[in-house]
């Protein structure tokens, strides 16, 4: 079995060339994912990367595992259906801020709440890149670079970590595309967490938001252990600047669905048909 040989990060990359712009933060996320897979010694055949639509959602094709590139906003739904049907698989959902927090916002809330044992990596660059630079739910209020909202969106940006917490996500971390080693470590921990793990990655868009290169000056690393209390975490997530990285909150609870202890009844089908007979 080839998997017995220790694979390196590059062995987890496919031969498909990314469509991303030079300098895109998503390259760093791809590197971190493959590094984490190598670190975990993960079996490529038993791993599925699922995504929606957007620049970041192209990622599954760039990894040598199974993948599903779905429709806009629905990656989390596909991923949960897959994991519930096939609990033996390692399932990661990926996507951008528009995909996950706008069109897919309802699925994000319910995925946090449902707590299926899988990982969701949201690659947040505060912009719709694939449609050429419109404001997203995480864009600053005064960002006036889009012709669609020439005076800025004028709406308060969304706080993904706070929403995840309020919706019941038991594991919340943040990464930064400028620190792929930390991100790889967080991804490995996320996959190992027995429940829904939400990794929010600040992944810069060099093309539409060149000002995001300034992020490296404001990013901080969370010190100490992750918060394990939702009340404390709520205060942090509502008031933070959104640039502290690391594992921020971890309060494990039983994932869904519970493992059934009922034996499967081999005659169940015949019994169901018979239940209709007069």
């Amino acid at each position: 079995m080839t998997e017995a040989i220790k694979l390196k990060a590059k062995d987890y990359k496919s031969e498909v060339k990314p469509i991303w712009c030079p300098g895109c933060g998503h390259f760093s996320v791809l590197n971190a994912i493959t590094k984490a897979m190598a670190g975990l010694g993960i079996n490529k055949d038993n791993t599925v990367l699922v995504s929606g639509i957007g620049c970041s959602s192209r990622l599954p094709a760039y990894v040598d595992s199974y993948g599903f590139h779905g429709v806009h906003g629905r990656g989390l739904a596909i991923a949960q259906g897959l994991k519930v049907a096939r609990p033996d698989l390692t399932v990661l959902a990926l996507g951008g801020d528009g995909d996950g927090f706008s069109i897919g916002g309802n699925h994000f809330i319910h995925a946090c709440r449902r707590n299926v044992n899988m990982t969701y990596i949201a690659m947040d660059n505060e912009v719709y890149g694939m449609t050429k630079g419109q404001a997203s739910p995480t864009t600053p209020m005064d960002w006036d670079h889009s012709k669609l909202t020439p005076h800025g969106p004028g709406v308060r940006p969304f706080k993904p970590a706070a929403l995840a917490l309020a919706s019941g996500a038991p594991w919340i971390a943040r990464g930064y595309s400028g620190n792929p080693n930390q991100m790889a470590k967080l991804i490995a921990e996320a996959v190992a967490h027995p429940g829904f793990s939400f990794l929010h990655v600040m992944s810069q868009c060099i093309t539409f938001c060149p000002e995001q290169t300034d992020w490296k000056a404001i990013v901080t690393e969370h010190e100490g252990p992750a918060l394990a209390n939702a009340d404390e975490a709520a205060k942090v997530f509502l008031h933070e600047d959104g640039f502290q990285t690391g594992l921020l909150y971890c309060e494990p609870r039983p994932s869904w669905p519970p493992v059934s202890d009922k034996p499967v009844d081999g005659n169940a089908l015949a019994g169901l048909a018979a239940s209709f007979r007069v």
Binding site: Q80, G81, R86
Partner: peptide, 8 residues
């Protein structure tokens, strides 16, 4: 989409 995921 959940059905599609399971079918996949």
């Amino acid at each position: 989409n959940m059905a599609i995921g399971a079918a996949f």
